[in-house]
Every structure is written in C-alpha cells, then in structure tokens.
Simulated scan of single mutants.
Amino acid sequence: MTEPTDTDVVCFDLDDTLCTYSQDGAAVLSAAFERAGVSQCWDIGAYYDRYRDYLADSTDILDLRRQCFGDLTVAAGHDRAAGEAVADAFEELRDQERIEPLPGARRVVDQFAGEYRLGLITNGPPEMQRTKLEAIGLDDRFETVVCAGYDTAPKPAAEPFDLALEQLESTPERAVYIGNSLSSDIAGARTAGLRSVWIPATGDVPSEPTPEPTHTLGSLEELATPPW
C-alpha cells in the first residue's frame, strides 16, 4: 500500500467490511414477519437507518432490536408487541445463520498484521461482535477492539476512534480506517482526523460520495495490491 511512511496503525470496521451473514437482512426480516404472523410494514433499510439510535440504551442486540422494531412498528400503525414479536423471530432466524468472512478478509488482515498495529472499531454489542470475529478466525489479530455504542458513543462520533488510537499509542495522522459505510465509518474517521478507505458493500457507488473518503476500493482484496 502507498500511504505515507509514518503510517503505523490500520483499523477496520467489522460488519459488511470483514464479515457478513450467509443471508441478507431483508430476507431474514421478511421471514421474521412471517414467523411472527405480522404483515410486513417496514423494510430493513428503516432498521439500518435507526439502529445506532438505540446502541447507548440497549443491554444487548435483542434488547436493541426489540426497542427499534417496536418503535418502527408503532410508527407504521401497529402494536408495539407485534414489533417485539418480529424482533424475537429475527433473533431466532439470525442464530441459525452462518457468519462468513468476506473475500480477502483473512489474507489482508494477516498481511497487515505483519506491517501495522491493528485495531477494530465496530458498532455493536461486545459479545456478539467478538463471536463474529471468532467465527471468521480473526479473534486474535487485533490489538484493540472498540465496540462503539457500548465502550464509547457509537460511530460516527470521534470517541471510538480516539479510544482505539489511545490504546494503540498512535495519532490520527498515522492511522487509516477501513469500512463500508459512508455515514458511520467514513464520517467517523473524518471527524476523528483519520484517513479513510471506503469499500462499498454494494456495487451502487455514487459518483461523488458524501462524506468523501480518502480512497475508494472495489473490494478488500484490492487493499493487498498497491497502489491505493
């Protein structure tokens, strides 16, 4: 990679950057509505848009989903209990799925571990996120794991980035952050003063992404092949 020679830290996002579920969220949500016996009244995008709002006040991922799904269902004109039933069904269906590494994840992380100090900055409950790391065989690769929303304020706040850099004994000028979300990863990195690499989760890439990342790549595998 062709970053300045004083780069000593690389931090990654987790969900849809290094790993993903074997089935996409939209399909799981549709099945959850069906299992709960509730007519689907909102889509997965509504959940993704709102879930950060519940990170600080939830005890675990099921509690977060029950709060969020309940509010979304009430806003759609239905009872809160119906939304909570959908959350319970979603949890059961997610538990049956596999967590899979994205192509190139292990190779890139292994390569970078020999060149940089590595950190992980992820929005999500610590137990769930560490379970994902174990499932993809990367649980021992990161010197620090910051679960934003629990250890600190959620991304895109600067706090999780600041904490990771403090633990890695580095500064924003010497660090790079890699993630898939403009609104969470790239915005947070910019707020904290880190350079950023955006790897979109889908092929639908705007010509002028906002906020603008330092670099945009098509896949994790491109990280291992300079220049970028």
Score class of each variant (00 low, 15 high):
Thr2Met: 05
Thr7Lys: 09
Val10Thr: 14
Asp13Thr: 11
Asp15Gly: 03
Thr17Ile: 06
Cys19Ile: 03
Cys19Ser: 15
Thr20Tyr: 00
Tyr21Pro: 05
Gly25Glu: 01
Val28Leu: 12
Ser30Trp: 06
Ser30Cys: 04
Gly37Asp: 02
Gln40Asn: 06
Gln40Glu: 06
Asp43Phe: 14
Gly45Pro: 01
Gly45Tyr: 04
Ala46Gln: 15
Arg50Ala: 10
Tyr51Ala: 06
Arg52Thr: 15
Arg52His: 08
Asp53Thr: 11
Asp57Asn: 11
Ser58Thr: 08
Ile61Ala: 11
Leu62Lys: 11
Leu64Gly: 06
Leu64Pro: 01
Cys68Arg: 10
Asp71Cys: 00
Asp71Gly: 00
Leu72Arg: 07
Leu72Lys: 04
Thr73Cys: 14
Asp79Asn: 08
Gly83Gln: 06
Ala85Tyr: 06
Ala85Arg: 13
Val86Thr: 08
Asp88Leu: 03
Ala89Asn: 07
Glu92Ser: 11
Glu92Leu: 05
Leu93His: 13
Arg94Trp: 05
Gln96Arg: 15
Glu97Ser: 12
Glu97Gln: 15
Arg98Ser: 15
Ile99Cys: 13
Glu100Tyr: 07
Pro101Trp: 05
Asp110Tyr: 00
Ala113Ser: 15
Gly114Leu: 08
Tyr116Ile: 01
Leu118Met: 07
Gly124Leu: 01
Pro125Phe: 06
Pro126Glu: 07
Glu127Asn: 09
Gln129Leu: 02
Gln129Trp: 00
Lys132Met: 09
Lys132Gly: 12
Lys132Val: 05
Leu133Tyr: 02
Ala135Phe: 12
Gly137Thr: 06
Asp140Tyr: 03
Arg141Asp: 00
Thr144His: 05
Val145Trp: 00
Cys147Ile: 02
Ala148Ile: 03
Tyr150Val: 05
Asp151Asn: 02
Thr152Pro: 07
Ala153Gly: 11
Lys155Glu: 02
Pro156Val: 05
Ala157Ile: 03
Ala157Tyr: 12
Ala158Gly: 09
Glu159Asp: 13
Pro160Leu: 01
Asp162Gly: 01
Gln167Phe: 04
Leu168Asn: 09
Glu169Trp: 01
Glu169Phe: 04
Glu169Lys: 13
Ser170Trp: 03
Ser170Pro: 09
Glu173Val: 09
Arg174Pro: 11
Val176Met: 05
Ile178Leu: 10
Ile178Trp: 12
Ile178Pro: 10
Gly179Ile: 01
Asn180Arg: 07
Asn180Gly: 04
Asn180His: 12
Leu182Val: 13
Ser184Arg: 00
Ala187Ser: 12
Ala189Phe: 05
Arg190Asp: 10
Leu194Cys: 12
Ser196Cys: 07
Ala201Gly: 15
Ala201Met: 08
Thr202Asp: 13
Val205Leu: 02
Ser207Leu: 05
Pro211Gly: 08
Pro211Asn: 13
Glu212Val: 09
Glu212Tyr: 07
Gly218His: 14
Ser219Leu: 02
Ser219Val: 10
Glu221Phe: 01
Glu221Met: 07
Ala224Gly: 15
Thr225Arg: 13
Trp228Glu: 13
